[in-house]
Amino acid sequence: MLRLVARRLLWSVPLVLAAAAVSFIAVGLLPGDAARSLLGQNATEEQLQQARHQLGLDLPLWEQYWHWLTNALQGDLGTSLISRTPVVDELNSRIGASLSLIIGATLLAAVVGIALGVRGARRGRIGRLVDTVSVIGLAVPDFWLGLILVVVFAVELQLFPPNGYVDPLEDPIGWASSLVLPVITLAVPAVAIIAKQTRDAVATALDRPFVRTLRAAGISDRSILFRHALRNAAIPILTVVGLVFVGALSGTVAVEFIFAIPGLGSTAVQATAAHDFPLIQGVVVYFTLIVIVVNLAVDLAYGYFNPRVRLT
Rank of each mutant, 00 (worst) to 15 (best):
V283S: 13
V130A: 11
Q50P: 00
L29A: 14
E45P: 00
L77C: 09
E90Y: 03
R84L: 04
Q197A: 12
R3K: 15
S220I: 00
A254W: 04
E256P: 06
L77M: 13
R8G: 14
G113C: 11
I114R: 00
R52P: 02
F160L: 07
Q281I: 13
E63R: 11
A105T: 05
A34M: 09
R125G: 14
F160I: 02
T312L: 07
I193R: 11
A34I: 12
V151C: 01
A273K: 11
D200H: 09
I173L: 15
A274H: 13
V211G: 01
A109L: 09
S98E: 03
E90L: 12
V285F: 10
I103G: 03
V294P: 08
D76H: 09
W11D: 11
L145P: 13
S93V: 00
E45T: 05
W62F: 14
A19V: 12
I290G: 07
A301I: 08
D33H: 03
L296C: 07
S177F: 12
T185N: 13
N42W: 02
M1D: 07
E63P: 00
F153Q: 06
I126Y: 09
E170I: 12
V111I: 15
G120S: 05
T85N: 05
D167L: 10
R125I: 14
G117R: 12
S134M: 05
E90D: 15
V291P: 06
L55S: 09
L77G: 03
L296F: 06
L279F: 05
T252G: 09
G263R: 10
V152P: 11
L101G: 12
G40D: 06
V180T: 10
T185A: 11
N295K: 12
P168Q: 09
L107C: 11
